[in-house]
Amino acid sequence: MRDIAMEIVSLNVGLPQTIMYQGKELVTGIYKYPVSSSLHVSKTQLDGDGQADLTVHGGADKALCVYPEEHYAHWEQVLGQKMAAGTFGENLTVRGLLEYQVCIGNTYAIGDVIVQVSQPRQPCHKLAKRLDWVDATLQVQETGYTGYYLRVLTEGVISKSSQVRLIAKDEAGITVAYANQIKYHEKTNIEAAKRIAEIQALSASWKQSFLKRLAELGA
């Protein structure tokens, strides 16, 4: 099997903080900042990292958030400003693995840590507030530039210089980009929804979402 080169551009962490947005307090963990040190990765998160709303963020299915560096040029052009790594709340800013190249269920080694792609990243309202751009969530969905989440199969230590290699590609071959397309644009595609829901490695929340959709479609 040919290894797919995947480079970590930046390793980012941040603990929840309280910000003021339009005169109201908001607790959020979306502010992530690059670090140069090596960090331990547990089954649920990186050392020094945290999430504010654990009902929709973090946990075993979403231990690490990944975002491709390649998308930053697009957003910088749209918003007319430079953006630092971690702006999208990602733990790993990467180069070389975009949504159309990465399949849900793919397993990778990052140094001695073993991870598995669990679902596309589903942007929440806090990203819009982080960017001060009300359409951020919709635009991320429309472009498909969502990033994705990893679950940790084997804990260990990672750093910006950790080498990344593909260990196993999921048999279903459903890319993150395809899952996004069905989730947001082809909402009545029953066969595709069934294929996605059947992916063994799919996160519990996305599996439930697609099973609910299938029930509503009478499938």
Results as ranks from 00 to 15, higher is better:
residue 2 R to E: 15
residue 4 I to T: 14
residue 10 S to N: 05
residue 14 G to N: 05
residue 18 T to K: 11
residue 19 I to E: 07
residue 20 M to V: 15
residue 22 Q to V: 12
residue 32 K to G: 02
residue 34 P to K: 04
residue 36 S to F: 09
residue 37 S to L: 12
residue 39 L to C: 05
residue 44 T to Q: 11
residue 46 L to C: 00
residue 51 Q to M: 14
residue 63 A to E: 03
residue 67 Y to K: 04
residue 70 E to I: 08
residue 71 H to E: 09
residue 74 H to V: 12
residue 75 W to D: 03
residue 85 A to M: 06
residue 87 T to M: 14
residue 90 E to D: 05
residue 92 L to R: 02
residue 92 L to T: 03
residue 97 L to K: 09
residue 103 C to D: 00
residue 105 G to V: 06
residue 107 T to S: 06
residue 109 A to V: 07
residue 112 D to A: 08
residue 112 D to I: 07
residue 115 V to E: 02
residue 122 Q to I: 09
residue 128 A to T: 06
residue 129 K to W: 11
residue 132 D to W: 10
residue 137 T to C: 11
residue 139 Q to L: 15
residue 140 V to Y: 01
residue 141 Q to L: 10
residue 143 T to R: 11
residue 147 G to T: 06
residue 148 Y to A: 04
residue 150 L to R: 07
residue 151 R to M: 09
residue 152 V to W: 02
residue 152 V to G: 01
residue 156 G to E: 01
residue 158 I to R: 02
residue 160 K to Y: 09
residue 160 K to A: 13
residue 162 S to A: 07
residue 162 S to Y: 09
residue 164 V to I: 08
residue 165 R to C: 12
residue 168 A to R: 15
residue 169 K to W: 10
residue 170 D to M: 04
residue 170 D to C: 02
residue 172 A to W: 15
residue 186 E to Y: 11
residue 190 I to A: 07
residue 191 E to W: 13
residue 195 R to W: 04
residue 197 A to V: 02
residue 199 I to H: 00
residue 200 Q to D: 11
residue 202 L to W: 02
residue 203 S to L: 03
residue 209 S to K: 12
residue 215 A to K: 13
